[in-house]
Design a protein around this nucleic acid. Structure first.
Lengths: 146, 146
DNA sequence: TATTGTTATACTCTATAACTATA
DNA sequence: TATAGTTATAGAGTATAACAATA
């Protein structure tokens, strides 16, 4: 029996195996990009689009980074014309960020490309395994947000 | 229906959802460490232990980074006394790396700690969900290595 | 006084290109 | 000439601490 499978039999071993797998796949996904936007920027941009518009702080919480990190990421997106900034309607301290038209266009194109890489590999899996990953994705998301 | 669940119904949407989930969990796991070793170093150390000993190039391939990155990581591990370096028995160009006793000790302790964080969250899941993740882990690993 | 965001600073991770040593 | 590893260099991502503006 391979060492990894043996490890994964116990719950703590499973956590370890899962952690390594997640880190490696994350690294691989970072490499799979083509536009001038990085994986981090694309992830933030996608989150903004999914929510319509967000403040810096809320966006940072969703992406699980500290506010200064998000300020920087949004700055990069702004420089590239991918998002727009606006004053919060009632709270002058807050900043509301939305995806620009250019951002929407790039997001669609880039996501199609990145997804194509992963989707291609996933097509090589059995339908059962794909279904398994379909159900696993929200669980991983839940663990990240726990 | 939530936007994410709607997205995940299609295969390309699933890839996108999975990519975001994996990146966020990876980010979270990076934060969950206690020793002076980083997540990257721990991952490499664990891989060395799993294989007994490895050359720099092979280790880099396993971890899916370029050789110079691995040279640096191994250098850090060496500085901290976590690994030992030895000349390859027959090929003078290659370098063989193994985990030291200190490395074994730290790896066990740290992995227990990191796993405890993830395992705790996983205990909050249903047995069915845990089983799902148990089966998903090798699939994620496979995708990373594809 | 508390909260939101920014600036300043530093460290880790990673990559590419160029170099050294060995095969 | 080809391969394994290292060094040099650069850029992205992230964090903490200190600061400014607003509530």
């Amino acid at each position: 029996m391979p060492s990894k499978a043996r490890l994964a039999r116990t719950d703590s071993g499973l956590a370890s195996t899962l952690a390594v797998s997640v880190m490696r796949l994350s690294r691989r996904l970072r490499q799979e990009r083509d536009s001038d936007l990085t994986a981090t920027q694309l992830s933030a941009l996608g989150t903004i689009r999914r929510h319509g518009s967000l403040t810096i702080g809320t966006l940072a919480a969703y992406e699980r980074v500290q506010p200064p990190s998000m300020t920087r990421t949004v700055s990069c997106l702004l420089d590239r014309g991918m998002v727009t900034r606006a004053a919060h309607p009632t709270d002058g301290r807050q900043v509301v960020v939305s995806v620009s038209d250019e951002g929407l266009t790039l997001l669609d194109a880039e996501r199609r490309r990145r997804d194509a890489w992963l989707a291609k590999r996933m097509r090589e899996l059995s339908p059962a395994d794909r279904e398994l990953l379909r159900r696993a994705a929200p669980l991983l998301e839940g663990l990240a947000n726990a």
